[in-house]
Simulated assay, not measured.
Amino acid sequence: MKLRSLGAHTQQDDIRHVRSFVAFLGRLPDKTGAEDLRQYQFDQHRRAVGPATINATLSALRFLFTMTLKRLEIAPGLSGIR
């Protein structure tokens, strides 16, 4: 994250969002599939999470899957509210 020049606050938020996702999954995210992401996004909507938080979560997950886990195939499932 530091190599990508992400600020300290962004790093903390990203870690918080990833932890929330992992808690929802109940397992490590390395084997996550598109259905897991869909279910998590549905859960966020069910809990009335605001659009800004949803987009921040998706940004954190996009970083996790594309930069950290090198799972580029998962990125299309990470679309936000625009």
Rank of each mutant, 00 (worst) to 15 (best):
G26M: 05
S59G: 11
L69C: 00
R4F: 03
A60E: 06
T57K: 12
L69Y: 03
M1P: 11
R46P: 00
V49F: 04
G80T: 07
I15N: 10
A8E: 14
F21V: 03
T53L: 06
S5H: 10
F42Q: 11
S5Y: 05
R71W: 02
H45C: 14
A60K: 06
M1I: 05
A56W: 05
F21I: 00
G26A: 06
L6I: 02
G26K: 08
Q11P: 05
L78Y: 03
R82K: 15
A60V: 02
S20N: 13
Q44D: 05
L6F: 11
Q11H: 06
L37A: 02
D13S: 15
Q41T: 05
K2M: 03
G26I: 01
G33R: 08
L37I: 14
R82A: 11
R16T: 14
D13E: 15
L72W: 05
A60Q: 05
A60F: 10
F24Q: 13
T57Y: 07
S79N: 11
F21W: 02
Q12R: 13
G77R: 10
L3W: 02
A23T: 12
Y40V: 08
P51L: 07
R16F: 14
G77F: 14
L61D: 07
L61E: 04
I81L: 11
H17C: 15
E35P: 00
V49K: 06
L6P: 03
L78K: 03
V22N: 02
L61S: 07
L3I: 01
S20F: 08
A8R: 13
L58W: 06
R4M: 03
R46K: 10
R38W: 00
N55T: 09
Q39I: 01
Y40N: 08
L64N: 04
V49D: 05
K31S: 11
D30A: 10
L64I: 03
D14T: 08
L58I: 14
L61G: 04
M1G: 13
D14Y: 15
L6D: 00
L72V: 04
E73P: 00
Q44C: 15
D13Y: 13
I81Q: 06
R47Q: 13
I54C: 07
V22I: 15
A8F: 13
G7I: 00
K2F: 00
M67A: 13
H45W: 11
E73S: 03
I15Y: 08
L37S: 01
R38F: 06
V18C: 08
K70Q: 11
Q39V: 08
L58D: 04
D43T: 12
D14C: 14
T10F: 02
T57Q: 07
F65A: 05
H45D: 09
T53Q: 07
H9R: 15
L25Q: 00
L25T: 03
K31Y: 06
A34H: 04
R38Q: 08
A60R: 07
R46D: 14
R27G: 05
R46Y: 12
A56Q: 15
